[in-house]
């Protein structure tokens, strides 16, 4: 469900120009790069960082939606939401696996998340305050994620592309699930309609921020584009998202909270008002409404699960020892 331009990657490399040119030629020929292939250190670092951020976003993303599993207002919605949040966990797992092919371990990545070195999508640092937020997250956040993830299925790094194909296939129900919730609410009672509008008011701008900083300020975009880790710029994807989403909001009878939003026939897309990038950076750097709670919840699960993981390893060792004795 994640999508956000990569934050703060270091794509510098120290390889010879010949090596870099040969590598670039493979990329330009649309060859996939596999884990054991020679690759520029910057390419490897960028990927570890991006796949790691992506995986962390899936895992942290389980929390805001998980907040409503126990309160889902019907059994059908409860089952669907549980299956969806479970999927996010699966997607995190696929992505950690893809990153692990590059020589980093899941435990290392987890430590980086818990001590704040690793980033994740800023959207998950906002609170889910009503059932309509679950609808909005599916519709907008997963919608934004799909925009970003479909091009990633063609990413130059094989394991990442393969993980994304699986993720995209599974995620096709997520956005529909969210939009259907919004549809039901907007066709419902006055209180439900209010709930739906309130959720859109709160999630619209953070959803636009998910695509990452404006192209003019996105310093690592060029190298990632050249290496085909990224296929479209942040602004291109954001525009696509707005153009797809505004008519959907109209269908729901909801008002997008942007007074400057207007159709621009010349560019065949919507113009929109300014995005509050100060807020974006504040949230990315830890100052969002829920940053501390999200990391605290992940840390709690990790620390309180330590004895379980230790026990499983201890048991495996005991059993291996017993088998060895029996074999003698």
């Amino acid at each position: 469900m994640y999508s956000q331009g990569l934050i703060g990657a270091d794509g510098r490399s120290e390889e010879t120009p010949e090596f870099l040119a040969a590598f670039q030629a493979r990329i330009d020929a649309e060859e996939k790069i596999e884990p054991k292939d020679a690759m520029p250190e910057g390419y490897r670092r960028t990927l570890i960082r991006q796949i790691g951020q992506h995986a962390h976003s899936e895992i942290v993303g389980m929390l805001p939606e998980g907040n409503w599993i126990t309160r889902a207002p019907s059994l059908k919605r409860k089952a669907a939401l549980l299956a969806k949040v479970q999927d996010e966990g699966g997607h995190g797992l696929y992505l950690y696996s893809a990153a692990e092919t590059l020589g980093v371990t899941r435990d290392e990545m987890t430590e980086e998340l818990l001590d704040g070195r690793a980033k994740y999508s800023s959207i998950f640092n906002y609170p889910t305050l009503s059932w309509a937020d679950i609808g909005c997250i599916g519709w907008l956040v997963d919608g934004a994620a799909i925009m970003n993830q479909i091009p990633l299925c063609r990413c130059s790094f094989g394991p990442y592309a393969r993980a994304m194909i699986r993720v995209c296939k599974e995620e096709s129900f997520h956005q529909r699930q969210g939009y259907e919730i919004m549809l039901t609410l907007t066709r419902g009672t006055e209180a439900q309609k209010e709930m739906a509008q309130d959720a859109l008011d709160r999630w619209w701008w953070p959803s636009l921020m998910m695509f990452g900083p404006s192209d003019a300020d996105s310093q690592h975009s060029d190298q990632s584009m050249a290496w085909k880790i990224k296929r479209f710029t942040n602004d291109e994807l954001r525009q696509k998202f707005i153009d797809a989403t505004v008519p959907q909001a109209e269908y729901l009878g909801l008002k997008v909270p942007d007074p400057e939003l207007a159709w621009n026939a010349e560019k065949n897309g919507y113009d929109h008002g300014p995005i509050d990038w100060d807020e974006f950076w504040r949230v990315v750097k830890g100052g969002g409404p829920m940053n501390r709670e999200r990391i605290a919840a992940r840390r709690k699960a990790w620390e309180e699960g330590a004895w379980v993981r230790e026990a499983a390893l201890a048991h495996a060792e005991k059993r291996a020892a017993r088998t060895a004795v029996a074999a003698e």
Partner: peptide, 22 residues
């Protein structure tokens, strides 16, 4: 299809079922 972590073969098999065959 991918990879996962497990302390032993049975747990890995269980996890594979839950992760990759939903």
């Amino acid at each position: 299809v991918g990879s996962l972590h497990g302390a032993d073969a049975e747990l890995a098999l269980s996890a594979a079922r839950d992760v990759y065959t939903r």
